[in-house]
Deep mutational scan, measured.
Amino acid sequence: WEITFERNGKRITVRTTDHRLLELFEKLWRNGADERELERLAEEINR
Rank of each mutant, 00 (worst) to 15 (best):
W1P: 06
W1G: 08
W1K: 08
W1M: 10
W1L: 10
W1A: 08
E2P: 02
E2S: 04
E2V: 09
E2T: 08
E2N: 05
I3H: 13
I3R: 14
I3N: 05
I3V: 15
I3F: 12
I3A: 10
T4M: 06
T4Y: 05
T4G: 02
T4L: 04
T4F: 04
T4C: 06
T4A: 06
T4S: 09
T4D: 04
T4I: 11
T4N: 07
F5M: 04
F5D: 00
F5Y: 13
F5C: 05
F5I: 13
E6K: 03
E6C: 08
E6M: 09
E6Q: 06
E6T: 08
E6L: 07
E6H: 07
E6I: 12
E6G: 01
E6D: 05
R7I: 15
R7C: 05
R7F: 10
R7D: 02
R7N: 05
R7M: 12
R7V: 15
R7W: 06
N8D: 11
N8W: 02
N8L: 04
N8F: 03
N8K: 04
N8R: 03
G9C: 04
G9S: 04
G9E: 04
G9W: 01
K10L: 11
K10G: 02
K10T: 13
K10R: 09
K10I: 13
K10C: 04
R11D: 05
R11L: 13
R11E: 11
R11F: 15
R11K: 14
R11Q: 13
I12C: 02
I12A: 01
I12K: 00
I12L: 07
I12F: 13
I12N: 00
I12T: 03
I12H: 05
I12S: 01
T13C: 03
T13L: 05
T13M: 05
T13S: 06
V14W: 01
V14H: 00
V14T: 01
V14Y: 03
V14Q: 00
R15M: 08
R15N: 09
R15W: 05
R15Q: 08
R15D: 02
T16L: 05
T16A: 10
T16S: 11
T16G: 11
T16M: 03
T16K: 02
T16P: 02
T17E: 10
T17Y: 11
T17R: 14
T17G: 10
T17N: 15
T17K: 12
T17W: 10
T17D: 12
D18H: 06
D18K: 04
D18Q: 06
D18N: 13
D18E: 08
D18G: 03
D18R: 03
D18P: 01
H19G: 09
H19A: 14
H19F: 15
H19M: 14
H19Q: 14
R20L: 12
R20H: 12
R20K: 13
R20Y: 11
R20C: 01
R20T: 12
R20N: 12
R20M: 10
L21C: 06
L21T: 06
L21D: 07
L21F: 07
L21V: 09
L21W: 11
L21M: 14
L22R: 05
L22V: 10
L22E: 01
L22S: 02
L22A: 05
L22H: 03
L22G: 02
E23Q: 12
E23D: 12
E23M: 13
E23P: 02
E23K: 12
E23V: 12
E23T: 10
E23N: 10
L24I: 10
L24E: 11
L24N: 06
L24F: 12
L24P: 01
F25Y: 02
F25G: 00
F25E: 00
F25A: 02
F25Q: 00
F25I: 07
F25M: 04
E26D: 08
E26C: 04
E26H: 08
E26N: 07
E26M: 15
K27L: 13
K27N: 14
K27C: 07
L28A: 15
L28Q: 08
L28R: 09
L28D: 01
L28F: 10
L28H: 09
L28E: 10
L28M: 13
L28I: 09
W29D: 02
W29G: 03
W29M: 09
W29K: 03
W29A: 04
R30M: 13
R30Y: 15
R30I: 12
R30E: 14
R30D: 11
R30A: 12
R30V: 13
N31Y: 06
N31T: 08
N31Q: 14
N31R: 05
N31G: 13
G32P: 02
G32E: 08
G32N: 10
G32M: 06
G32C: 03
G32Q: 06
A33G: 11
A33H: 10
A33D: 04
A33M: 10
A33V: 12
A33E: 08
D34I: 15
D34P: 10
D34K: 03
D34Y: 07
D34M: 14
D34Q: 05
D34R: 02
E35H: 13
E35V: 12
E35G: 05
E35I: 15
E35M: 15
E35C: 07
R36Q: 14
R36N: 14
R36G: 14
R36T: 14
R36M: 14
R36H: 15
E37Q: 10
E37C: 10
E37H: 03
E37R: 05
E37P: 00
E37A: 10
E37V: 13
E37L: 08
L38K: 00
L38V: 02
L38M: 07
L38W: 06
L38C: 01
L38S: 01
E39A: 06
E39K: 06
E39N: 05
E39S: 09
E39R: 07
R40E: 13
R40G: 09
R40S: 12
L41G: 00
L41T: 03
L41P: 00
L41Y: 07
L41S: 01
L41K: 03
L41C: 05
L41I: 10
A42S: 04
A42T: 03
A42G: 02
A42D: 01
A42C: 06
A42W: 07
E43H: 08
E43L: 05
E43F: 07
E43G: 06
E43D: 14
E43W: 06
E43V: 06
E44G: 02
E44I: 13
E44W: 15
I45E: 02
I45Y: 03
I45C: 03
I45L: 06
N46C: 11
N46Y: 06
N46V: 06
N46T: 04
N46M: 07
N46D: 05
N46A: 09
R47L: 14
R47M: 14
R47K: 15
R47D: 10
R47P: 03
R47S: 15
R47Q: 15
R47F: 11
R47G: 15
